[in-house]
Each structure stands twice: as structure tokens, then as C-alpha cells.
């Protein structure tokens, strides 16, 4: 089975004035060519930091250990020059907030063009033509005019389309989408998801979709990995997990999604009791045990390893 992007045993630590924070622990993920992997979890579960680390974009106080392989290069140990041959070219990334993720003082055409000028050694004129072409392919209306606009002159949805166009310019093999729809209106969200689906089909790009929105995952992903407190707690085929989740946390997340069918019975929204844990003071044993409905003494004492598809002692019963 071929793998295009391989994360092995990744650990991410942040040193803070209050001590070390274990943001990501022992995460392994393998991405197959052209597949769409969903990565879900609450805020602070480490889902974004996993790929920030993989792309060498950690904040200054963060360190990553383990390995992230792309085409024979370990991105964690590669020097800046080698990393920059892959970033934005073979592996591209789009971010949550298209308002702040584009440079405010640079025209859209220039921000797009510089990717091609750098990676493809194009002239400014060629880069502009290619940028225009890409804007059209991501269905930006009046694309020619947009090239000479500043990001603040575009709507949120258009900015995200510009971000996606920027990511696709070099025809990457892997697109990492970090909460691509979170900051957008619901109707615009649907349009952006349609676009990502199209990207996958037309370009054969493998997509990592990082989100806290299970609805987004259901619509796009083939496989899903669920993260909790910096660890993967369940991973598997998206249909199977939605139909019969094995980890109590996944089951809890799914039951939190309001559904039109059971509106008769559910008057209040279902929630998982308790708070996500403080990463500096993780509970002993399974990090989820204080909030788990199936908790017993073993869960409190011992941390379950990711065996097969899930990290839970109670998985058989689930």
C-alpha cells in the first residue's frame, strides 16, 4: 500500500512559563495518494499542531520529535531550504481564517504569483497568467479584476477561494486544510467543500481535512482520525465510524451532533460532560476517563494504547 505522506510517532511539546505542554503525543498517520483524511477533535486536541509541526510551522517555543516523511524527505529534520522545496509546491496548506491569513498589503495577483515565481521560476507575466487561470478554476468570478485587488476588498468566501487557488498553483500532491470552513457562512461553507471535492477529483490531490465539524468530515472524508488530548483515540473508515463508533469519545461527539430525526425526543442539545483536559495536568490513565460514561478502575490507572483502530479498554463493548 503506497503512502504519500507519513507521520510516524510524532510528539509536539511547547515550553511555556508554566512548564511543558504536550500538545501532540505519539501520533502516527499515513495518507494514501488521492485520499481524503478527516482529523477531528475539540480545540486544543492537537489536530492543527500535528500538521503545523509536519510543515515546520510551529511557534518558536514548540519542538517536534518523531518523523514526517514526504517523498524520501523527513520534514522534521530537513533544513529550511529543502523544506521550502516541498512546502507550497508538493505539500500545500490552507488555513482557518482567510481574513488574516492573506497579507493585507499585497495584491491578490502578487500573492498568488510569488508562489510560481519562487517554485517554478516563472516570470512575473507568466505567473500572473497562471494565477488568473487558477482563480478561474476555483470559480472566482471576475478573476481578472480580482488580481489587482487587496484581500480586504474580497468577501470571506472569495478569500478562501484565493487561499485554495494559492495552494493549488504548483499542483501539490497533498493539501492540508486546517479548518477551511470554520470562519465562513454556512452557504459559503458548502461551496468551499464542493470546491475541495472538485479539487480531489480533478487534480487527484490527497486532502487532510482538519476540523471540529463532523458534518464536514462526513461529506468529504474517506477515513477519519479522532484526536483527544494530543492523541489519536480512534481511526478508521468514515462510514464505519459514523455507524458504529468504538471509542466512547467518538460516540459522545456523534451524539452531540443535533439531528433532525430525533428532534421530537431531544429538547436540549446533548453534550459530553466536563471540560477538555489541561494538557499540562493530564489525568492518569486514559485522558478521557473523567468524562467517560464507561470508566472503570483500569481506565483510571492505565493508558490504553492505540490497538488496531481504537485506544480504549472498553472498545469491544462499544
Amino acid at each position: 500500500m503506497s503512502t504519500v505522506f507519513d507521520i510516524r510517532d510524532l510528539n509536539v511539546r511547547f515550553s511555556t512559563p508554566d512548564g511543558e505542554v504536550a500538545a501532540v503525543s505519539e501520533v502516527s498517520l499515513a495518507l494514501k495518494p488521492g485520499e481524503c483524511l478527516g482529523l477531528v477533535g475539540e480545540s486544543g486536541s492537537g489536530k492543527s499542531q500535528t500538521f503545523m509541526a509536519a510543515m515546520g510551522l510551529l511557534a518558536r517555543n514548540g519542538t517536534a520529535s518523531g518523523a514526517v516523511h514526504y517523498g524520501g524527505t523527513n520534514l522534521l529534520t530537513a533544513n529550511e531550504t529543502d523544506l521550502n522545496k516541498i512546502r507550497g509546491d508538493r505539500v500545500a496548506m490552507i488555513f482557518q481564517d482567510p481574513m488574516t491569513s492573506l497579507t493585507p498589503h499585497m495584491k491578490v495577483g502578487k500573492q498568488l504569483g510569488e508562489v510560481l515565481i519562487h517554485h517554478r521560476k516563472m516570470s512575473a507575466r507568466e505567473a500572473r497568467a497562471a494565477a488568473l487561470d487558477m482563480l478561474k478554476r476555483v470559480h472566482v468570478p471576475e478573476a481578472e479584476r480580482r488580481l489587482d485587488m487587496y484581500p480586504h476588498e474580497l468577501s470571506g468566501g472569495l478569500r478562501q477561494r484565493v487561499m485554495i487557488a494559492m495552494a493549488l498553483l504548483c499542483g501539490p500532491e497533498v493539501l492540508i486544510a486546517d479548518e477551511p470552513t470554520t470562519a465562513l457562512d454556512v452557504t459559503v461553507q458548502a461551496q468551499i467543500l464542493d470546491l475541495l471535492r472538485e479539487v480531489r477529483v480533478q487534480h487527484g490531490t490527497a486532502i487532510v481535512l482538519i476540523t471540529h465539524d463532523l458534518g464536514v468530515i462526513a461529506g468529504l472524508a474517506d477515513r477519519v482520525a479522532v484526536m483527544y488530548a494530543g492523541r489519536i483515540v480512534e481511526v478508521g473508515d468514515v462510514r464505519q465510524i459514523f455507524r458504529s463508533p468504538r471509542h466512547p469519545y467518538t460516540a459522545g461527539l456523534l451524539s452531540c451532533t443535533p439531528s433532525l430525526e430525533n428532534r421530537v425526543t431531544a429538547t436540549a442539545l446533548t453534550t459530553i460532560p466536563g471540560q477538555p483536559p489541561n494538557l499540562q495536568r493530564l489525568p492518569a490513565g486514559c485522558a478521557f476517563h473523567p468524562r467517560c460514561v464507561k470508566v472503570d478502575d483500569r481506565c483510571r490507572a492505565e493508558r490504553p494504547a492505540l490497538v488496531g483502530d481504537t485506544a480504549c479498554f472498553k472498545a469491544e463493548a462499544a
Binding site: M55, G56, L57, E80, T81, L83, N84, K85, I86, R87, G88, D89, A92, M93, F95, D97, T100, S101, L102, T103, P104, E114, V115, H118, H119, M163, M166
Partner: peptide, 12 residues
């Protein structure tokens, strides 16, 4: 955030 984007683009 836009500096992070620029780095993700692979610019020196």
C-alpha cells in the same frame, strides 16, 4: 497569520 501563510508557501 499571513506570515505563517507565506512560510507555508515555501518562500525563503
Amino acid at each position: 497569520n499571513f506570515v505563517r501563510t507565506a512560510r507555508a508557501k515555501g518562500l525563503p
